[in-house]
Amino acid sequence: MESAIVKTNFNFPGQKQQYIGKVRDVYNINDDYLVMIVSDRISAFDVVLPKGIPFKGQVLNQIASKFLDATVDIVPNWKVATPDPMVTIGHLCEPFKVEMVIRGYLTGHAWREYKAGKRTLCGVSLPEGMIENQKFSEPIITPTTKAAHGHDEDISREEILSQGIVSEEDYIQLEKYTRELFARGTQMADKMGLILVDTKYEFGKKDGKIYLIDEIHTPDSSRYFYNEGYAERLQNGEQQRQLSKEFVRQWLIENGFQGKEGQQVPTMNESFINSVSERYIELFEKITGDEFVKAKAEDVHARIEKNVNACLQALHK
């Protein structure tokens, strides 16, 4: 089994602070740039699982980089450079305290809520009589609060505005960007024989300007179905073939874990870890149309440090 990168602890020139997220290690450089290292950690139900997934960080970083480049005509984004397969360097922005979740289909969390009898999600009314994985008449935006720790919470547009979390002017712009990005992602997925089911976007501000930040259209932030066989599976009440992290969540649920108090994460054996790695690589190739080239695995920390330092040096010239 290839080794996975689950921890970093660099000291880059101009480094002011380090933030360890569920998956990403983020380094603040002079309050001007962020160095974002996408580790091989994997999280589900807001819990970081005990073992990493080889090449997952590279997959996520390179998919996000491709989609950031492919959507820069819609909204400016934070990316400045990708000096290493696992690293993006970009503008430090002040993040909005909401994540813009957009759903084209009734699945995942939305389906679990619907199945429990709820007909309103984040202030959006849902019609009666829908079935799992059915397409909405038009995509719905279901924002969540951005929790520093623990679970993100569903929130409505009205609550965001009434609580002053985002100004009305900015929020209208965020909704517009979210719909346009989702339309572009849907279009690109369709060309590859995939359906972009749902996703989330994060935005921030720098010098009064809104930027798209973080990852975009990766299997950690998005769900994809295969187009082929979608209608038949829906009609027959079968589960859709999908490329997303949902299969990890399903495996955890089947093994008695949903992130609830007192529950133990099931043992992740080598076979399961390798199967997850293969699924991430499959998605990379399926969604980008590019062959996945595994980065050299020996002394990855030294490689990252060298590549990042060279890039920072060039940026500060």
Rank of each mutant, 00 (worst) to 15 (best):
N236T: 10
V265M: 10
I253H: 06
Q235H: 14
K205P: 03
F247R: 14
Y177K: 13
I273M: 12
F225Y: 15
L194K: 06
K205R: 15
E285L: 09
G237V: 06
Y226H: 10
K191E: 15
L181D: 02
F182H: 07
I216D: 04
E175C: 15
P266S: 10
M268Q: 15
T218D: 06
Q242D: 14
E180F: 07
T178W: 06
R184Q: 12
R249K: 13
D198P: 11
G208F: 13
G229S: 12
S222W: 01
N269Q: 09
I273T: 10
F247V: 07
R223E: 02
E232S: 09
K206I: 13
L181T: 00
D214E: 02
R249A: 02
G256E: 08
L212V: 01
T267I: 15
V197M: 06
V197R: 10
L174G: 05
I273D: 04
R249V: 00
L243P: 06
L181H: 03
G259T: 01
A231I: 02
K260N: 15
D207I: 06
E215C: 03
N236D: 11
L234Y: 04
Q264S: 13
A231V: 01
S222G: 12
S271H: 12
T186H: 09
Q242V: 00
E278W: 01
L234M: 08
G237M: 11
G256T: 01
E202F: 08
L283W: 10
G259L: 08
M268E: 10
E282M: 12
R279L: 06
K245A: 05
S244A: 07
E202Y: 08
S222F: 02
K191G: 14
K260W: 14
D198N: 12
R241H: 15
T186M: 12
A189F: 00
L234D: 01
S222L: 11
Q250M: 05
F272S: 03
R184G: 06
V276P: 02
E246D: 08
Q239P: 10
G193W: 00
D220Y: 02
K205Q: 13
F247K: 14
Y224T: 00
K260D: 15
E180W: 04
I210R: 11
Q239M: 11
I213F: 11
R184W: 04
F203I: 00
N227C: 03
G193M: 02
T186L: 09
L212A: 11
S275Y: 08
T218E: 10
